[in-house]
Computed example of a mutant assay.
Amino acid sequence: MTIGRDARLDRLRTDDRYLIVPMDHGITLGAVRGLADIESTVDAVTRGGADAVLTQKGLAPRVHPNRNGAGYVVHCNASTVLGPDSNDKRRTCSVEEAVRAGADAVSFHLNVGSNHEPDQLTQLAELTGDADRLGIPVLAMAYARGPDLEGDEPDALGHAVRLAEEVGADVVKTGYSGDPESFESVIDDTALPVVIAGGSRGDDRETLEMVRGAMDAGAAGVSMGRSIFQHDDPGAITRAVSAVVHKNVEIDTSLEKVEVNH
């Protein structure tokens, strides 16, 4: 642990809670809605209360002028939906490249239980070692995905978040198990701050119910992409999610922050 690492972590959170909006999906899906004009989306979500945004390194010049002082995370592996296996994430960036791109942290995706787990585990361990030498925090996106796994099972998610801690990550992102009671066991399997993924986009109430449930279970926040950047009003849904994460408000109250804009 270094002063530099702690200082950079503070740029990604507010009062130890995280609202990160990942927008690295362009490499996976192409320039989909919300990402073609990524400048406007970054501006909207950071004005709406996002603590940090996340992209691949090449988009840094489009992010920095529009992030309104929010933190910036550079993602370091990827795959595409057009390739033979979307779970086969390959390295796209080094820690040094991320630092040159102005990153406050780096992130890495690991599919625990997949055929690619051994290579991704090795790569994540190497990344955390490089990041530690430079005082750069690491967000591990540790998912339970593989041929023998069905859905977001609490035991598998718990294994994934513990793995992230064991190899030196600072924050871990994983799927939501579906209810606060089962997700508490996932939180208990690691000492790291746990943030949940947004998954495929649902309606506003479903999104906020998931966030509320995760926070009630003890999560440290969310790292939510498509449910925010593909929303009709990314700034409004960010304000609603932020109200739950940072102000601990209930669902109906947070929904008002979306509805007032429509």
Rank of each mutant, 00 (worst) to 15 (best):
S86G: 12
K89E: 13
V194I: 11
R91F: 10
L149M: 11
S114R: 05
V172D: 00
T122N: 13
G175M: 06
G178Q: 10
D85V: 12
T122H: 15
P147C: 03
E117A: 14
S107M: 09
S177L: 05
V95G: 01
P147K: 09
P84Y: 13
G199F: 06
M141D: 08
L82K: 10
V138W: 01
L163T: 12
G102H: 00
D189M: 13
P193I: 02
Q120T: 09
H116S: 08
G135H: 03
N115A: 15
G83K: 08
H116D: 08
A103W: 00
G178N: 11
A164I: 04
E166C: 05
E181Y: 12
A160H: 01
L110H: 09
G175Q: 10
R100I: 02
A169S: 09
E117S: 12
V161K: 03
E165F: 05
F183T: 03
D155R: 14
D148C: 12
L149W: 04
T190G: 04
L192W: 06
S94F: 01
E97G: 03
F108R: 04
A98V: 01
S185W: 09
Q120N: 10
T122R: 14
E96R: 04
Q120P: 07
L163W: 10
T92I: 09
V194W: 05
F183S: 04
N115E: 15
E97M: 00
E126F: 07
V99F: 01
F183C: 07
D188F: 06
A103L: 01
V112H: 05
A164N: 03
D155A: 15
A125I: 14
T122G: 14
D88W: 13
